[in-house]
């Protein structure tokens, strides 16, 4: 596995699991912002299409020691994305400043190799035509093309919002690569009523996310999904650009997906 790609701007997310109550406002915001069609029955979670899912985590202890947490899961925008290397048509790539893993749906042939490769189940296949109730197509935003059936799609960190923020900076005569904190925020981060999702440039010390992540890492409460937990861990590390915070150890342990100790 090669090293993670390096970018001067690295858009990232810090999700404070301890502040999330699993209300799903982020999922609704994502659907509206990215023109994701509603479904009349989404109880079959294998067929339901979401760019962002809020998972319910439990510490697996019986009542009254039971504890619960909610974990919103957008595309992790891996520094070393397993989906990119398997795409036969380069429909998904990580080659743009900002480090967002692209998804070019007109180029996608629907082979779903990327879905198999993604360890986070963050990619979704359009099994069906997207259908909006009559008239509801008028609420489609002009920012994100509607995808046909037969292609894979995923969270783009609301990439169009970045484009809009850059355009605005250019019009105002500012450097589009030096956006201020909060100028570009994905819909889920904006809409979280608990302020559980912080978004910004992981490498820009003027952005709140930079300080939050440093402070939390120093305390050992920041983690990435599927992160390596010890040096002997040989599993590939996708190095996500999405970080989570939790003061609860069981949440961190669950996210690291540490395997039981085996004989070396």
């Amino acid at each position: 596995m090669t090293a993670a790609k390096n970018f001067a701007i690295t858009w990232g997310m810090v999700i404070d699991v301890d502040k999330c109550t699993g209300c799903g406002a982020c999922m609704v915001a994502c659907q509206a912002e990215n023109n994701i069609a509603p479904a009349t029955d989404a109880s079959d979670k294998l067929k339901a299409l979401n760019w962002l899912v809020v998972y319910e985590l439990a510490n697996k202890k019986p009542f009254p020691e039971h504890d619960v947490a909610y974990l919103p899961r957008p595309c992790q925008q891996c520094g070393n994305p397993p989906c990119v290397s398997v795409c036969p048509v380069t429909a998904t790539d990580k080659n743009e400043e900002g480090g967002i893993v692209s998804q070019v749906t007109p180029r996608c042939i629907g082979c779903r190799y990327c879905m198999a490769a993604c360890p986070f189940h963050a990619r979704y296949f359009n099994w069906f035509d997207p259908v909006w109730p009559k008239g509801m197509e008028k609420t489609l935003t002009p920012d994100v093309s509607v995808r046909p059936r037969g292609v894979v799609e995923k969270c783009t960190f609301c990439h169009h919002r970045w484009m809009a923020a850059k355009d605005k900076a250019i019009v105002e005569g500012r450097n589009p690569n030096e956006l201020a904190d909060g100028e570009y925020v994905p819909a889920c981060a904006q809409m979280c009523p608990n302020g559980a999702i912080v978004f910004g440039d992981l490498k820009n010390s003027d952005h709140a996310i930079y300080q939050i992540l440093r402070a939390a890492s120093a305390k050992g409460i920041a983690f990435q999904l599927l992160s390596r937990t010890h040096k002997k861990d040989r599993r590939p590390n996708p190095e996500p650009q999405v970080y989570y915070l939790s003061r609860r150890k069981w949440v961190r342990d669950l996210a690291s997906f540490r395997l039981p100790k085996t004989r070396d």
Partner: peptide, 30 residues
């Protein structure tokens, strides 16, 4: 097309509930 929270409102913030977030689409409810 979409709805967001109004942090200037005394009962608002940047975010809204999952229900209020779907209010625009409900205009076209079947």
């Amino acid at each position: 097309v979409t709805i967001a929270g109004n942090p200037e409102h005394p009962l608002g913030s940047n975010g809204v509930t999952a229900l209020a977030g779907a209010e625009v689409q409900m205009l076209y409810s079947p």
